[in-house]
Write a protein that binds this DNA or RNA. Structure first.
Length: 751
RNA sequence: GCCGCUGUGGUGGAAUUGGUAGACACGUUGGACUUAAAAUCCAAUGGGCCUUAAAAGCCCGUACCGGUUCGAGUCCGGUCAGCGGUACCA
């Protein structure tokens, strides 16, 4: 599973360490935004690619958001195609390529190797040597950022050699270019410029032949890459012809032929790369590995765990080695098995290592004989619900699945997957902001101007009371001839300099941007939960966060929304307690609730229970509010009903619920009580309301006693008799009667 | 470019999965209480039409265009916008 390899890694000189691909964003380090260059170094790798297929397949069984599963599928990037071997014209060498379009083989007019491809050196001719070496040197120096910049402009050099296209015997030139990646497929491609956009651009630039082998597009304008409605042409030799076949059939026919001839075979390739697992930092789990006679060797179990040495400084050594390399009395040790001198591995594991198995260790933190005891693992695993941010979609969540599968294979865990159900909580944004933009001359901009304007902008924050929404857009209130605004500088700082905005100054169509932003210090829209707790209490904060909307959804913060749930909590208090005396209200009485009270309670129990199970906390809270609005009207509030309500409230507002539970004379704690159950029979209404439609439009409403509610004849008769409905039926021919029990009646008429 | 998700009042969001769109909350307006304010309570609140007024009624309305259906926020096809992911992956 673990091996060492010389890989071109993302070396960040500023941080003095190597970064994983996922930690590099647009050629800069995710942390700090420093430049990153590619540099070959000896690194530890974990063979996650060996699990690619299982990581892909087992996604099906998981109760995860579709978007996360899709991201993992894309990341794993499975593609099915064929490996095809091309012989060289002058030598016995072979170039193996991977293609998903073997049906276009007759259209391969040149080949491209990645600059790092091992064959490049062998096949480069003397005349081309200088150009090739130069190109390789430059490609090696390029950072990821540079490569991205050059995307639109293809570069490459001819090696001087030719390969033979096995289907038609044509000699085709072999080039090197950095648009072919050494790390994907075989590091070499057959270029089919007629049917691959990248090859087409390259062929255009270097004047290579473009041949049409699939009919359906215009290859003089762009590559024709659709595979749904293409038909093979110009694709035959003495033994095989693909002409006239649709793409799928052509692929099968040629693959079979290549197989028979020993020229190639069906192959599956993944985008997923092996996991670069070492870091040159002090903080990180040390590898349980020593180097004896220059070879790595795992330490025996009784020498574990390897702990980090005490040090004065944590800074990187700067040479690319970990700071641990400078601590000689730790680094130099002896092999416990042979007694030979040994050197400790100085790389450490990345941050993800711990997050790949902490959920197992947390189950059994004191266990000494392994990561987790069998017994506890079987009791607790898999994790029933994992709530986390979407930013972990392909990092932590893929790595942890990988480790878990390895642990499953060696018998440490009993489940194939660690996290059965996963929910992504949505981010909470700052409050809604209204912004108007001003150019460097102080002119306010319209939407069109803003789109094209490139100079320095000043953001002016307007407050909600100055804005009206008419139709699709927001505009300034007409009475705001002049209004004070808060000036936000380009650096994000907010100075409360008073500016005066003259409404008619810049003309109509002013652009007012209305949206909320991710909370950030620089924008100054951060809500500190401590302040909210201070002012409204922890219950109100908790309740508000759940009331804002669906758990998974991104939603803006609103201070007046907090105010709203805070008012609700105060209402709950006053439903039970006399605010003056702090004693129970006289309305709170012993005795049986009436039918209406029972119905209100049981409706709340049903809704709240179902909504908690389905993570619909917002609608559950609204059910509690509906109950309280109802109960506040009661002269007598039976104790039993109040008790059950407090139980329903307790997961949402535990502090308040505990207090009221005690005030109602109950034994603590409210959290150790059994959850109330609802009784369906208490929910039944005395009568049923039917909406009556005529031709699909509601024209009236009738009430029928519950005992008659499913009586079709009776309901229809009453429906037709309803005064307004009758108006619409008059003089018309009734062609159809729709009766949906307990829902609706629809009468279809003609004429 | 490609993949995924989301578009509902002034705002956050509901809608039993095809059955009265806008629950609940915020905000706004009016009223009560108060010397006043806060707090609290009551009422109204998608847009429009008809009517002296009220009651009732009618039309339009879930991003846009079209379709299926007795009936569409919900299903299907297309378009647009926003958000997230990803990008020379052969």
């Amino acid at each position: 599973m673990a091996y060492q390899a010389d890989v071109a890694v993302n070396w960040c000189p500023e941080l003095g360490t190597v970064l994983a691909n996922e930690e590099v964003i647009d050629g800069k380090s995710e942390v700090g935004g420093f430049p990153v260059v590619r540099k070959p170094m000896k690194q530890w790798m974990l063979k996650i690619t060996a699990y690619a297929e299982r990581l892909l397949q087992d996604l099906e069984e998981l109760d995860w958001p579709e978007s996360i599963k899709e991201m993992q599928r894309n990341w794993i990037g499975k593609s099915v195609g064929a490996n095809v071997r091309f012989g060289m014209q002058e030598t016995d060498d072979e170039i193996s390529v991977f293609t998903t379009r073997p049906d276009t083989l007759f259209g391969a007019t040149y080949m491209v190797l990645a600059p790092e491809h091992p064959l490049v050196d062998r096949i480069t001719t003397a005349e081309q040597r200088k150009a090739v070496d130069l190109y390789i040197g430059e490609a090696g120096k390029k950072s990821d950022l540079d490569r991205t910049d050059l995307n639109k402009n293809k570069t490459g050099v001819f090696t001087g050699s030719y390969a033979i296209n096995p289907v038609n015997g044509n000699a085709i030139p072999v080039w090197i270019a950095d648009y072919v990646l050494i790390s994907y497929g075989t590091g070499a491609i057959m270029a089919v410029p007629g049917h691959d956009q990248r090859d087409w651009e390259f062929a255009r630039k270097f004047d290579l032949p473009i041949v049409e082998v699939v009919k359906g597009g215009d290859i003089t304008k762009e590559a024709f890459t659709e595979s749904e409605n293409g038909i093979s042409v110009n694709s035959s030799n003495d033994e095989i012809s693909l002409d006239g076949l649709p793409v799928d059939e052509a692929k099968e026919r040629i693959s079979a032929w290549l197989g028979e001839k020993g020229l190639g075979e069906k192959t599956v390739t993944y985008k997923l790369r092996d996991w670069l697992f070492s870091r040159q930092r002090y903080w990180g789990e040390p590898f349980p590995v020593i180097h004896v006679d220059g070879k790595p060797k795992p330490l025996p179990e009784d020498s574990l765990p390897v702990t980090l040495p005490e040090v004065e400084k944590y800074e990187p050594s700067g040479t690319g080695e970990s700071p641990l390399a400078t601590i000689t009395d730790w680094v130099n040790t002896t092999d416990p098995e042979t007694g030979k001198p040994a050197r400790r591995e100085t790389n450490t594991m990345p941050q993800w290592a711990g997050s790949c198995w902490y959920y197992l260790r947390f189950i059994d933190p004191e266990y000494k004989n392994g990561p987790v005891s069998k017994e506890k693992e079987q009791y607790w695993m898999p994790v029933d619900l994992y709530v986390g941010g979407a930013e972990h979609a392909v990092l932590h969540l893929l790595y942890a699945r990988f480790w878990h599968k390895v642990l499953y294979d060696i018998g440490v865990v009993s489940t194939k997957e660690p996290f059965q159900k996963l929910v992504n909580q949505g981010m909470i944004l700052g409050e809604m902001e209204f912004t108007i933009y001003k150019d460097e001359n102080g002119r306010y901009l319209t939407q069109k101007e803003l789109e094209t304007y490139e100079g320095p902008l000043t953001r002016l924050k307007l407050s909600g009371e100055h804005i009206t929404k008419d139709g699709e857009r927001y505009s300034l209130n007409p009475e705001q001839a002049h209004l004070p605004v808060i000036v936000a500088g380009p650096d994000g700082s907010k100075t409360t300099v008073k500016d005066y905005f003259a409404k008619d100054e810049p003309g109509e169509d002013l652009y007012i941007e209305a949206r909320s932003f991710k909370m950030s210090k620089s924008r100054g829209n951060v809500i500190n939960p401590d302040d909210v707790v201070e002012r409204y209490g922890a219950d109100a904060l908790r309740l508000y966060e759940m009331f804002m909307g669906p758990l998974e959804q991104v939603k803006p913060w609103s201070m007046s929304g907090v105010e709203g749930v805070y008012r609700f909590l105060k209402r709950v208090w006053r439903m039970i307690i006399d605010d003056e005396t702090g004693k129970l209200l006289p309305e709170i009485v012993q005795g049986e609730p009436n039918a209406g009270q029972e119905k209100a309670l049981h409706e709340a129990i049903k809704k709240v229970t179902g909504d908690i199970e389905g993570f619909r906390f917002n609608t559950g809270i609204s059910a509690l509010m509906i109950f309280v609005n109802e109960a506040m009207k009661w002269d007598k509030r039976p104790l039993s009903v109040m008790n059950d309500f407090i139980l329903l409230l307790s997961p949402y507002a535990p502090h308040l619920a505990e207090e009221l539970w005690a005030k109602l004379g109950n034994e603590p704690s409210v959290s150790s009580q059994t959850w109330p159950e609802y009784d369906e029979s208490k929910l039944v209404d005395e009568s049923q309301t039917y909406a009556i439609q005529v031709n699909g439009k509601v024209r009236g409403e009738i009430q029928v006693p519950m005992s008659d509610a499913k009586n079709k004849e009776l309901v229809l008769t009453e429906a037709k008799a309803e005064a307004n409905v009758a108006r619409y039926l008059e003089g018309k021919q009734l062609v159809k009667e729709i009766f949906v029990p307990l829902r609706i009646v629809n009468l279809v008429v003609k004429g």
